[in-house]
Deep mutational scan, measured.
Amino acid sequence: GTVHVGDKTYHFPTPDAAKKFAQEIAKKLNLQVTVKNGTWQVH
């Protein structure tokens, strides 16, 4: 899975790992999470 946070991109071996990371970052930074075609965006 891929997660975009601002101008950074993180790659994870599984979709679940990407989802978990995106949700944790969003919670920590009080941001929104959207997913499109398996790519997570934190914004």
Results as ranks from 00 to 15, higher is better:
40 W>L: 06
20 K>G: 06
14 T>Q: 05
24 E>G: 08
28 K>P: 04
11 H>G: 04
10 Y>V: 03
33 V>K: 01
30 N>Q: 08
26 A>R: 02
27 K>M: 11
23 Q>A: 09
1 G>F: 15
20 K>C: 04
32 Q>S: 12
18 A>R: 00
2 T>N: 05
33 V>P: 04
40 W>T: 03
27 K>A: 14
43 H>P: 04
13 P>K: 12
30 N>Y: 04
9 T>F: 11
40 W>K: 01
42 V>A: 03
20 K>V: 10
42 V>H: 02
28 K>E: 12
13 P>Y: 07
1 G>E: 06
34 T>K: 06
41 Q>L: 15
35 V>E: 15
40 W>S: 03
37 N>D: 15
36 K>M: 14
5 V>L: 10
22 A>K: 00
12 F>R: 00
8 K>M: 10
2 T>L: 09
21 F>V: 03
19 K>V: 06
35 V>F: 15
36 K>C: 06
37 N>L: 05
34 T>E: 07
1 G>I: 07
40 W>M: 05
19 K>I: 07
15 P>Y: 14
30 N>M: 06
17 A>N: 04
11 H>V: 09
41 Q>N: 12
1 G>V: 08
38 G>M: 05
15 P>T: 12
6 G>P: 02
18 A>M: 01
33 V>E: 02
29 L>S: 05
31 L>K: 05
1 G>L: 11
9 T>S: 08
11 H>K: 09
8 K>D: 07
27 K>I: 11
19 K>G: 10
4 H>K: 14
7 D>N: 14
20 K>F: 10
22 A>W: 01
38 G>P: 03
39 T>D: 12
12 F>L: 04
27 K>W: 08
30 N>R: 03
17 A>V: 06
18 A>W: 02
29 L>P: 02
24 E>V: 08
43 H>N: 10
28 K>N: 07
29 L>E: 06
41 Q>K: 07
35 V>M: 14
11 H>F: 13
42 V>I: 09
4 H>R: 14
30 N>F: 05
17 A>Y: 05
23 Q>K: 08
1 G>M: 10
32 Q>M: 12
36 K>I: 15
9 T>A: 09
8 K>F: 10
27 K>P: 01
20 K>S: 11
37 N>K: 05
38 G>H: 11
3 V>C: 02
37 N>C: 04
34 T>D: 05
25 I>C: 07
21 F>K: 02
32 Q>C: 09
18 A>D: 00
3 V>Q: 00
28 K>W: 06
16 D>T: 09
38 G>A: 06
22 A>D: 00
9 T>V: 14
4 H>Y: 11
2 T>D: 06
29 L>N: 07
22 A>P: 00
31 L>R: 06
39 T>P: 02
7 D>Y: 11
18 A>C: 02
7 D>A: 11
39 T>G: 08
1 G>P: 09
12 F>G: 00
33 V>T: 06
38 G>F: 07
14 T>M: 04
22 A>Q: 00
8 K>V: 11
41 Q>R: 10
25 I>K: 03
31 L>A: 15
17 A>F: 05
11 H>M: 08
21 F>A: 04
9 T>M: 09
11 H>T: 10
3 V>Y: 00
10 Y>A: 01
39 T>K: 09
10 Y>C: 04
7 D>R: 13
43 H>C: 06
23 Q>I: 15
15 P>V: 11
21 F>R: 01
1 G>A: 12
23 Q>M: 15
15 P>E: 13
36 K>W: 12
6 G>F: 15
29 L>A: 05
3 V>E: 01
9 T>L: 10
39 T>S: 13
23 Q>W: 14
3 V>I: 02
28 K>R: 13
8 K>Q: 11
42 V>K: 01
28 K>V: 10
2 T>S: 09
41 Q>Y: 15
8 K>A: 09
33 V>Y: 06
8 K>C: 12
21 F>G: 01
18 A>Q: 00
12 F>S: 00
7 D>T: 13
18 A>I: 02
20 K>Y: 10
38 G>I: 03
22 A>G: 02
1 G>R: 10
40 W>V: 05
34 T>S: 12
9 T>K: 08
32 Q>A: 12
42 V>L: 08
16 D>M: 10
24 E>I: 08
18 A>E: 00
5 V>F: 14
6 G>L: 14
5 V>S: 03
13 P>A: 13
25 I>Q: 06
3 V>N: 00
31 L>S: 08
25 I>R: 03
16 D>R: 07
35 V>G: 15
31 L>W: 14
35 V>S: 09
29 L>Y: 15
14 T>N: 10
8 K>P: 00
14 T>A: 05
22 A>I: 03
37 N>T: 04
24 E>A: 14
30 N>H: 10
18 A>P: 00
5 V>A: 04
1 G>N: 14
32 Q>P: 10
4 H>L: 15
32 Q>I: 14
6 G>S: 05
14 T>S: 10
20 K>E: 14
9 T>I: 14
20 K>L: 12
32 Q>H: 13
43 H>G: 15
23 Q>E: 15
37 N>R: 04
32 Q>G: 07
22 A>T: 02
34 T>P: 01
31 L>M: 15
14 T>Y: 05
37 N>S: 05
12 F>V: 01
26 A>S: 07
37 N>W: 04
14 T>V: 04
28 K>D: 07
39 T>M: 14
34 T>W: 06
18 A>H: 00
43 H>Y: 13
34 T>R: 05
41 Q>I: 15
25 I>D: 00
3 V>A: 04
30 N>S: 07
32 Q>F: 09
42 V>P: 03
28 K>Y: 08
19 K>H: 10
38 G>V: 04
29 L>T: 05
20 K>H: 13
10 Y>P: 00
17 A>P: 01
11 H>I: 10
13 P>I: 07
33 V>R: 00
15 P>K: 14
21 F>T: 01
30 N>I: 03
32 Q>N: 10
11 H>Y: 14
10 Y>S: 01
21 F>M: 03
7 D>W: 10
7 D>M: 11
5 V>G: 01
23 Q>S: 08
23 Q>V: 13
15 P>S: 12
21 F>N: 01
6 G>I: 09
14 T>L: 04
15 P>R: 14
25 I>G: 00
42 V>T: 04
32 Q>T: 14
32 Q>L: 11
2 T>V: 12
27 K>F: 11
26 A>E: 03
19 K>L: 11
1 G>C: 06
10 Y>R: 01
15 P>W: 15
7 D>V: 09
26 A>F: 02
35 V>I: 12
33 V>M: 07
8 K>G: 04
1 G>S: 12
18 A>S: 03
11 H>W: 13
38 G>N: 14
18 A>G: 02
4 H>D: 05
38 G>S: 07
4 H>V: 15
7 D>E: 12
15 P>H: 13
21 F>I: 02
39 T>N: 11
34 T>G: 04
14 T>F: 05
26 A>Q: 03
27 K>H: 12
24 E>N: 09
13 P>H: 11
5 V>D: 03
9 T>R: 07
42 V>S: 03
3 V>L: 02
40 W>R: 00
28 K>G: 05
2 T>I: 13
40 W>C: 04
26 A>Y: 02
38 G>E: 07
17 A>K: 08
18 A>V: 01
28 K>S: 09
24 E>M: 13
15 P>D: 13
8 K>W: 09
13 P>D: 14
40 W>H: 04
27 K>Y: 09
7 D>I: 09
12 F>A: 01
27 K>Q: 13
38 G>C: 05
34 T>N: 05
37 N>V: 03
1 G>T: 13
5 V>Y: 11
10 Y>E: 00
36 K>V: 15
7 D>Q: 11
22 A>F: 01
23 Q>D: 11
30 N>K: 06
43 H>A: 12
14 T>W: 04
43 H>L: 12
33 V>N: 01
9 T>W: 11
12 F>Y: 03
10 Y>M: 04
31 L>F: 07
29 L>D: 05
25 I>H: 04
3 V>M: 02
10 Y>F: 11
10 Y>Q: 01
36 K>R: 09
39 T>H: 15
18 A>F: 02
29 L>K: 04
19 K>F: 12
32 Q>V: 14
39 T>V: 15
37 N>A: 05
2 T>C: 04
39 T>W: 06
39 T>E: 15
18 A>K: 00
23 Q>L: 15
29 L>F: 14
3 V>H: 01
13 P>R: 11
25 I>F: 06
19 K>N: 09
12 F>I: 01
28 K>L: 12
29 L>W: 12
24 E>K: 10
38 G>R: 05
8 K>E: 08
29 L>H: 13
27 K>R: 12
14 T>E: 06
8 K>I: 11
27 K>S: 11
15 P>F: 14
21 F>S: 01
15 P>M: 13
24 E>H: 13
32 Q>W: 07
29 L>R: 04
16 D>L: 10
17 A>S: 08
20 K>M: 11
6 G>R: 06
31 L>T: 09
30 N>W: 04
26 A>L: 02
21 F>W: 10
35 V>A: 08
12 F>N: 00
22 A>H: 00
6 G>V: 06
20 K>W: 10
41 Q>G: 05
